[in-house]
Nucleic acid binder design. Structure first.
Lengths: 205, 205
DNA sequence: CGCATATGTTGACATCAGCAACATTAAGAC
DNA sequence: GTCTTAATGTTGCTGATGTCAACATATGCG
C-alpha cells in the first residue's frame, strides 16, 4: 500500500490537493524574488507558479507578509549556516572575523534580493528551533572572536555587534551600488575592501 | 503687480492650479512615510493630502518610483549636510570619524523610514548639484580622516568605504531591531556601541 | 485677443491583497 | 465500508493601487 513515493511530499499539480503547497509556494517565491525583486513578488504570481488558484496561499500563510517572513527566516537560517561553516574551522580570532565578513558579504552578493528582503521585512520573524541553533552557534563564534581581539574591558556583546555591523554595512552599500564598481571588479579587490572594513586599523595591505 | 506673496510658491488648494504641487507632493510623501512607512505610501494618498486628483502627480513625476527617488535624494542631501556639519569643526581624525558615525546613526534613528527608503529604492538617483556638493564635501572629509588613521599604504578610498560601512551597518541593524534594546537604552550605551563599531580595535571604554 | 503649453480632472483598465461562500479531498470513528 | 469532520483548494467579490488616455482649465506669450 504505502510506498516510499506515497510518503514523500511530491508536488503533483494534477490533483485537487497539491501535496506540499506550502513548500511549493516558498520555492516559487524565492525564484520570483531572485528574478524580479520584492516589488515583483505577489501572492498571486506565486500561486500561478505553483499551479494553484489565487486564494490557495491563504490556507498556508495568513498574509503576504507572513510569506515574506517565512522566506526571510529561511534566509537567516542559510546565512547563519554559512557563517558557522566559515568560522568554525578557524581558531585565530582575526582570521575568523575575516572569514565571517567574507562569507557574509559573499552571501549578500550571491543572493542580493533575498538578503535585502531579510533586512527589510518589518515583521519580527518567528525563529524555528533549527534556525535558532545555527544563530546561536554563529553568535557565540563571532562574539568569542570579537572579544579576543578587543581591548580588555570591552563588553563582548558590544564587540560582537561591532563585528556584525561592519560586514553588514559593507554588504548593504555594495548591494545598493553605492560603492564604485571598480572596487568589486576582482575578487582580490573585494577581499581587500572586506578586510579593511572588518579589521579596521589592525589591517595593513 | 507682482508682490512677494505672489512670487512665493504658496500652497493654494482653492485654485485649479495648485501653485507648487511638486513640493506639496514631496512634503505629503515625507509625512506619510514617517507615519506609515514605505508600504503605506501611495501616490493616491499623496495626491489626496495635497488636495488634488489622483492622476495629478503624473504631471510632476513620471512614476511612483520617481517620487520615491526624489524623496531619497532629499534625504541624501540632508544626511550629507548633517555629516559635514558634524565633521567640519573637528580636526582630530579619530574624533572626526567618531562624530561622523554618531551623526550618521542619529540621523537614521531620527528618521528611520526615510533612511530605510534611501537605501532601499533600487533606482539610481539623480543627484542635483547642491546635493552633489554636500556629498563631495562629506566624502572628502571622511576620506581624509580615514586615511589619517589608516596604516600607510592603504588606499584612501578603501579606508573611506570602511568608515562609511561601519556606521551604516550599525544603523541598519539598529533600525531592524536586530540588536537588543538594552544596547540603546541610554544615550551613553548607544554612543559606546557606535564608538566600538566605528573605531574597532583602537577604541577602549 | 488668440493660441500653445503646462497643469489638473475624469474615467477607465489591469493587478493586487484579502475575504466569504462553496467544493473537494483526506483521515479517523464506527 | 460508510459517515463525519477538518484540511485544503476554488470561484467570485470588494476596495485600493499604478498607470494611461481623453478632456478641461489656466498661464504666458505673441
Amino acid at each position: 500500500m504505502s510506498t516510499l513515493s506515497d510518503a514523500l511530499p511530491e508536488t503533483r499539480t494534477d490533483r485537487y490537493h497539491h501535496g506540499d503547497l506550502r513548500a511549493a509556494l516558498l520555492d516559487a517565491a524565492v525564484h520570483v524574488l531572485a528574478e524580479q525583486g520584492v516589488s515583483g513578488l505577489s501572492l498571486r504570481e506565486c500561486a500561478r507558479r505553483a499551479g494553484v488558484s489565487h486564494a490557495a496561499p491563504y490556507r498556508h500563510f495568513p498574509s503576504k507578509e507572513a510569506l515574506l517572513a517565512a522566506i526571510a527566516s529561511q534566509g537567516f537560517a542559510w546565512l547563519y549556516e554559512v557563517g558557522v561553516a566559515a568560522m568554525a574551522p578557524i581558531a585565530d580570532p582575526v582570521a575568523r572575523l575575516d572569514a565571517y565578513g567574507l562569507s557574509y558579504v559573499q552571501f549578500a552578493l550571491a543572493h542580493p534580493q533575498h538578503f535585502r528582503l531579510m533586512f527589510t521585512s518589518e515583521c519580527t520573524l518567528v525563529a524555528p528551533t533549527a534556525q535558532e541553533q545555527s544563530a546561536d552557534r554563529a553568535y557565540v563564534l563571532l562574539r568569542d572572536a570579537a572579544a579576543a581581539v578587543s581591548a580588555p574591558g570591552v563588553d563582548p556583546d558590544v564587540a560582537a555587534v561591532a563585528y556584525w555591523s561592519r560586514p553588514h554595512g559593507l554588504a548593504m552599500l555594495l548591494l545598493d551600488a553605492r560603492i564604485p564598481a571598480v572596487r568589486m571588479a576582482s575578487p582580490e579587490a573585494l577581499e581587500e575592501l572586506i578586510r579593511a572594513t572588518v579589521h579596521g586599523d589592525r589591517w595593513t595591505p
